[in-house]
């Protein structure tokens, strides 16, 4: 018993200053490198395969996205469609391929795809830009 007590090394407590230093370094690292932005996204079928997924309609429905944000059905007169007209004119169970004009930016493409999703179109795809799709 006596020898045990003698052999026991005195307990060394961790220096508080060193601990605080390490914790501060960790805190700064996580503060500077952390991101709180959450990603979301739109999944769409590649236009090459969208015709295969179509169950009811063989040819996918083509919709044209104009630079100002208006939508028209491909091959029909250029009058922008309202949400109701889009829902009436197109089959929501069939594939829809959106053909944007060349100068449309990605923000508008995403907003429009998102809008079409809320209208019930789930088989969305992004096709080629409009003039080259026409050629």
């Amino acid at each position: 018993m006596h020898s045990l007590l003698i052999n026991q090394k005195p307990k060394k407590s961790i220096s508080l200053t060193a601990l605080v230093d390490v914790v501060f370094i960790l805190l700064f690292f996580f503060m500077l490198s952390s991101s709180f932005n959450h990603w979301t996204g739109i999944d769409f079928e590649s236009a090459v395969s969208s015709s295969d997924v179509t169950a009811t309609v063989k040819t996918p429905q083509l919709i044209r996205l104009h630079e100002g944000g208006g939508l028209t059905i491909y091959g029909q007169p250029n009058s922008f469609l309202s949400d109701q007209a889009i829902s009436d004119a197109m089959n929501s169970n069939a594939a829809v391929v959106m053909l944007p004009e060349p100068d449309v930016d990605v923000q508008l493409i995403v907003s429009t795809l998102e809008h079409l999703t809320t209208l019930g179109f789930n088989q969305l795809s992004l096709g080629a830009v409009f003039p080259s799709a026409q050629q």
């Binding site: 979301t40 930016d105 995403v110 992004l126």
Partner: peptide, 27 residues
């Protein structure tokens, strides 16, 4: 980015037979 530039990338993706594309956005 304009649709014409996005399309250059998507054309390659389409040619390679990629079935699904996830276009990222921020909440």
């Amino acid at each position: 980015v304009k649709a014409v530039d996005l399309d250059r990338v998507l054309t390659v993706i389409r040619d390679k037979g990629v079935i699904k594309v996830t276009l990222f956005a921020e909440k």
